Amino acid sequence: MKIFKNAILAVVAVLGMQTANAQAKTAHVDVNDITTKMPAMIEARKQLEKLTENYSKEYKTLVEEYQAKGKKYEAEAATVSDAVNQTRQQEMQDMGKRISDFQENAQTDIQKKEGDLMKPLVEKIKASIAKVGKAKGYQYVMDVSSLLLADGPDITVDVKKDLGF
């Protein structure tokens, strides 16, 4: 009898949890669609592309300069003293290190700039999703990219309007 009571209590508890879960209101949003079409996000990407392009040009110039010096030094190696060749070899190593350091610093700077530009925009999007979701009475709003089935209310358009586009 005691086992039967426990089994009934377990069934009631499971049914109660399912009922509570069924009553939770959920919606979905397409965050990728928002981030690819948000004007501020597009502008931030353009700034990052320009910065990356500038660093790429500088890097290319440094590498070309390094290669030109290397060819020149190689061509003249037989006609200059060992001391000059050693000095040139050290200069080439130093240039190689500067190029490597430049590349690392450029990557770090680009990542920092990306964080500085994107973090406030991502926070703004999250806040807008929360605002719209709460205003429409949803307890959960999920990103459509992580769902296997998105057959419910889509608040993407409402979030875009809230963000002003």
Rank of each mutant, 00 (worst) to 15 (best):
A83Y: 06
K112N: 13
A68F: 13
M118W: 02
T79A: 14
N54L: 06
A68L: 14
E53P: 13
Q93F: 04
S81N: 04
Y66S: 03
S56I: 12
Q90L: 09
T61F: 11
E74R: 13
A68D: 10
S81Q: 06
K50I: 13
K57P: 02
N105F: 04
G96I: 04
Q107A: 11
E91F: 03
E114V: 00
E114Q: 09
N54D: 15
D94F: 08
E76T: 11
Q89P: 00
K119V: 15
L51F: 05
S81V: 10
A68C: 12
V63N: 07
E49H: 06
M118Y: 05
E58Q: 15
G115T: 00
N105E: 07
E49A: 15
E58G: 13
E74H: 10
V63D: 04
E74S: 12
E64L: 11
M92E: 00
I110A: 06
K112W: 02
T79N: 10
F102R: 02
N85A: 05
G70D: 00
R88Q: 06
L62F: 09
D101A: 10
Q90G: 08
Q90T: 12
E58L: 11
T108Y: 12
K119C: 08
K60S: 14
K57M: 15
A106F: 00
L48W: 01
V80I: 11
M92P: 01
T108S: 14
V84P: 04
A75I: 12
Y55F: 14
V84N: 01
G96Y: 05
A106P: 00
K69H: 06
Q67D: 05
Y55L: 07
T108R: 14
F102P: 00
E65C: 05
K60D: 15
Q90V: 11
T79W: 02
Q93L: 12
E53V: 11
V80D: 05
L62W: 06
M95G: 08
Q86W: 03
T87F: 03
Y73W: 09
G115S: 00
Q103T: 06
Y55E: 12
S100L: 06
I110T: 02
N105V: 03
K72C: 06
G96T: 02
Y66L: 10
D101T: 13
R98A: 12
F102S: 03
K72A: 12
R98Y: 08
S56C: 09
V84A: 04
K113R: 04
V63R: 03
D94Y: 07
E74T: 11
K69W: 03
F102Y: 03
V84L: 04
T79D: 13
S81T: 12
Q93E: 10
E104T: 15
E76V: 10
G96M: 03
L117D: 01
T87D: 04
E104K: 15
T61P: 02
N54K: 05
L117C: 01
Y66N: 03
T79Q: 07
T108V: 13
T87A: 14
G70K: 01
T52C: 04
D109Y: 03
I110K: 01
L51A: 10
A75M: 08
Q89R: 13
K72T: 15
A106H: 00
E104G: 15
K57Q: 14
K112F: 04
R88V: 05
F102Q: 02
K69F: 03
E58A: 14
Q107R: 07
S56K: 09
Q90I: 08
K60W: 05
E91H: 07
R98M: 10
Q93G: 07
T52L: 02
T61Q: 12
K50A: 14
D101W: 01
Q93M: 12
